[in-house]
């Protein structure tokens, strides 16, 4: 391996690492707020990529009817959840959130989808379709388990992952898709050339990190999420409901997942089940960060990306093995130096 190849691999690793960083940040967010290890995060990535690909092909993506169905199910779950405090205002709010919003998004998708929308419009529609799914999945699958242990929530997350993968196969079929890059530009940088697409990926990742920082640091809603992560009972006593906190954090995760899908779709062919592997690598990074630290998770994600690209060059058959093996020394190190891991809060 000479220096040029190493540079190339590093560049590749950082670009992939940016995607893993986005995934890892979502996982940390969702885990600290809801104690759910969000295995289905990868499905948001795949849904984002495949939804955009369907728009590019001039069709209405299968995620649109899925969004309507999830919204209706979430509406039922939310009504049951709030049954002791139902008044007109609350019913209206639930209906707006779970029925009217997905209805409006679906109407737009049906109106604009067949006419092959521009790339920017397709991306906007994709994000609008996938983001609310996070909140709906929380209402359907996780809100009723609010008092359950981390392990039970994990099993539920695996269940949601399997269900979404199956639905992905139904709606998108077994064929993979790719989308055009956000930018065709190629910028020379010494012996290398940097593609516009990778600049977009790194730039948007940094933008998301800044946006998350501003959300937690500057807005009351962001602080409410952080408060829920710090002290669940204290947050409830301030009127910060776990349902609201869960829906919000799941929506942010779904948004980031869909955006990651949009970013990664031009680089690699995405199948209905590709998300899982991407999500798992983000998970490795999140674990290295202890599922608690955002900066550590983001840094670890870049490291995972670099390990992956170097491994792919040196021993491509063992690429995934090497990436996932990297977690073992980290776990040993963490368990050796950390206080006993707090399983429950």
């Amino acid at each position: 391996m000479d220096a040029t190849i190493l540079m190339l691999l590093l560049q590749d690793g950082v670009v992939n690492g940016a995607i893993y960083a986005l995934i890892a940040l979502s996982l940390v967010l969702v885990f600290t707020v809801t104690r759910v290890i969000l295995i289905p995060q990868g499905e948001f990535v795949a849904f984002g990529a495949l939804t955009l690909a369907a728009f590019e092909a001039g069709t209405v993506p299968g995620t649109v009817p899925l969004l309507l169905a999830l919204g209706a199910a979430a509406c039922a779950a939310d009504l049951v959840e709030a049954r002791h405090a139902l008044d007109a205002r609350r019913i209206l709010r639930i209906a707006l959130r779970d029925l009217v919003l997905p209805g409006a998004v679906a109407a737009l998708a049906y109106a604009l989808g067949p006419g092959k929308p521009t790339l920017a419009l397709g991306i906007a529609l994709t994000l609008a379709i996938v983001t609310p799914m996070g909140a709906y999945l929380h209402s359907i699958a996780f809100r009723p388990l609010e008092k359950a242990s981390v392990l039970v929530l994990l099993v539920a997350a695996v269940g949601v992952h399997l269900a979404l993968t199956g639905l992905g196969l139904v709606f998108f079929g077994a064929e993979g898709s790719r989308t055009p890059p956000l930018s065709d530009a190629m910028l020379p940088a010494g012996p290398l050339s940097v593609s516009g697409q990778s600049l977009w990926m790194i730039g948007l990742t940094l933008a998301i990190i800044v946006a998350l920082w501003a959300f937690f640091g500057l807005t009351l809603l962001g602080k409410a999420l952080m408060a829920t992560a710090v002290n669940r009972l204290g947050a409830r006593l301030m009127g910060i409901g776990p349902g609201m906190a869960g829906r919000l954090s799941f929506s942010v995760a779904a948004f980031i997942g869909a955006l990651s899908g949009v970013l990664v779709a031009p680089l690699t062919t995405i199948y209905y089940d590709t998300g899982f592997l991407i999500g798992l690598k983000g998970f490795v990074a999140a674990i290295i960060g202890g599922l608690a630290s955002y900066p550590a998770a983001a840094a670890a994600a870049v490291l995972v990306g670099i390990i992956e690209s170097v491994a792919a060059f040196e021993a491509s058959a063992f690429k995934e093995v090497i990436v996932f093996m990297a977690i073992i020394p980290v776990l040993l190190w963490r368990s050796a130096r950390a206080d006993p891991v707090e399983d429950e809060e």
């Binding site: 602080k223 952080m226 408060a227 710090v230 002290n231 009972l233 204290g234 947050a235 006593l237």
Partner: peptide, 8 residues
Amino acid sequence: RRELFATM
């Protein structure tokens, strides 16, 4: 136990 947000 007051239940403050200790790290905030």
